[in-house]
Every structure is written in structure tokens, then in C-alpha cells.
């Protein structure tokens, strides 16, 4: 019988420094995954935590990690050729197939862009499959900006609004992402989807703002982040009402998400 709790060793191929506190780790991996599924990443003798895929390529996956606790501190101490332990992929992903042929709105805050990056790249690489892509992404300040190269790339093909919470900078407006949602021409869309990932408060406010601007509830998708010790529906940490975020999420349609309460 397969032991689902047993992690496998994977080689780190490359470490990309995004900001002072956020690095992207490229890890050798060659089995199928769906866009923003997550893995339980671990370092022996330190611990384990769920991290979403932020990039995919032939023979590798990328995880963009913020240095924020014991495990992530440990991971930041690793470099190319070191070993990262992983098990997964777990959870669902945004329903990308359903996004195709329609207008797509992506709203993210901070590291929330990480799980949406694979999806943005999918539409960047195949511009014909979406009618339009609107991307609003916000960071705290210039030092917190992630994926600068990709932001520049996306600006060429997508309608983009980049913003910083409390400062202006070349290419960035000042303000929160929620202030710019009114720029999205929901009324002109025949059919569309909205994907939102960021801190919980930001996701709630962004969804509210979309609704206020004429978006329908069932067109909005959000992704939850919870403490997890297993990722496979046993440890109980991520349960909300009768829903397990690891099994039934982390991506939820807003019609479901709005009824979940912790």
C-alpha cells in the first residue's frame, strides 16, 4: 500500500532571488501537475508546510517562498544541488479550461501572484485562447515587487495595472488593487472569470469590489491558505465547516467561498 505521508527527495536546480524575503526555488520534477496545485515541502528534522506551484517547465517546478517561519528559514539556507523533500501534488487548481475562450480578470496581492503565474503564462503563451486578460497586481512597495521580468512581459499582451500600497514608482500606480477594479469593463464582457489570490482581507474586499462593479458571484474564484499537517484530509487543520481546503480546495468558487466561515 502506498504511504501518502512519505516525502520524496528532489534536487534543487536553481534559486532565484525575487526580493529580500522571497526566493523562487526551481526543483527537478517530471510528473504531471495542474496549474496551481500545492505540495507539502519539507526539510528533514525541521518540518513540513504546503506551498503552491509558482512556475512549471520541462523537468522542473518552481515554488516562490516567503521567509516567514522555521521551515522557510531552513529552505532559504538551501542552494543548487541541495535536496528538498516533497509530496504531492495536492488540491485542485483554478478551472483553467473553463477560462479559455472568455475574458479573464486576475487580481493578486503580494505573493498571491505566485500561484496565478502559471495560469498567466499559459494565456501569455497562447494569446488566442482568451478574449482578453486583465491583470491587477499590487505589492507593498518597490522592494516587495515579485517577478519583475514577467510583469514587463505580461504588460505587452495583457491589460495590466500594477500598484504599490503606499508609494508611486515607474510602472506602478499608488494604491491598493481594490481601487483599480473599477477600471475593468465587466459590462463589455460576454463571458468572463475573475481569479483572486492574496491575503484573506484583500481577497474579500476585492471580491466585494468586483460585485459592486457588476461582476457575478459565480464568475469569481478565490484560493484559500490554511495551516496543514497532512494535505490529504486527515489532520483536520484546514477544515472549514464540512469542507477540507486540502481536498476540496484550495480554489473555491465565490458562491461556495462566501458561505464558509472559520
Amino acid at each position: 500500500m502506498e504511504n501518502i505521508m512519505l516525502p520524496q527527495a528532489h534536487k534543487i536546480l536553481k534559486v532565484l532571488r525575487e526580493t529580500q524575503a522571497e526566493y523562487t526555488f526551481r526543483v527537478a520534477y517530471d510528473r504531471p501537475t495542474a496549474y496551481n496545485q500545492f505540495f507539502q515541502l519539507s526539510i528533514p528534522k525541521i518540518g513540513e508546510a504546503p506551498i503552491s506551484i509558482s512556475g512549471r517547465g520541462v523537468g522542473y517546478l518552481e515554488f516562490t517562498i516567503r521567509k516567514t517561519g522555521r521551515l522557510t528559514n531552513g529552505i532559504f539556507g538551501l542552494g543548487p544541488n541541495d535536496t528538498l523533500f516533497m509530496r504531492g501534488p495536492y488540491g485542485n487548481s483554478f478551472p483553467v479550461a473553463d477560462f479559455e475562450g472568455k475574458d479573464l480578470v486576475v487580481i493578486c496581492g503580494g505573493t498571491g501572484m505566485a500561484p496565478l503565474k502559471t495560469i498567466l503564462n499559459h494565456f501569455y503563451d497562447h494569446p488566442a485562447i482568451a478574449r482578453s486578460v486583465h491583470l491587477i497586481t499590487g505589492f507593498k512597495d518597490v522592494n516587495a515587487v515579485l517577478f519583475s521580468d514577467e510583469l514587463a512581459k505580461f504588460a505587452q499582451k495583457f491589460h495590466t495595472i500594477y500598484c504599490l500600497d503606499n508609494m508611486e514608482a515607474p510602472g506602478f500606480h499608488q494604491g491598493f488593487v481594490t481601487q483599480y477594479i473599477k477600471e475593468i469593463p465587466f459590462a463589455d464582457f460576454a463571458d468572463y472569470n475573475v481569479a483572486i489570490v492574496g491575503p484573506p482581507v484583500m481577497m474579500g474586499l476585492a471580491a466585494q469590489e468586483c460585485l459592486a462593479n457588476g461582476a457575478q458571484e459565480d464568475k469569481i474564484w478565490v484560493s484559500f491558505e490554511r495551516r496543514m499537517s497532512c494535505g490529504v484530509g486527515k489532520c483536520g487543520h484546514c477544515k472549514i465547516n464540512g469542507t477540507y481546503v486540502c481536498l476540496d480546495g484550495p480554489v473555491f468558487n465565490y458562491t461556495k467561498a462566501k458561505n464558509l466561515f472559520d
Binding site: 500500500m1 502506498e2 504511504n3 501518502i4 505521508m5 490529504v232 484530509g233 486527515k234 477540507y244
Partner: peptide, 15 residues
């Protein structure tokens, strides 16, 4: 139900 059914997977340590 939790260890052997939830999520469609079995926890070997429990089983």
C-alpha cells in the same frame, strides 16, 4: 471514515 475514507485515500499508520 476520517483515516480510511476522507479524501479517497487510506492512512497506513492507522490502517
Amino acid at each position: 471514515n476520517i483515516f480510511l475514507k476522507n479524501g479517497g485515500n487510506e492512512d497506513i499508520y492507522y490502517k
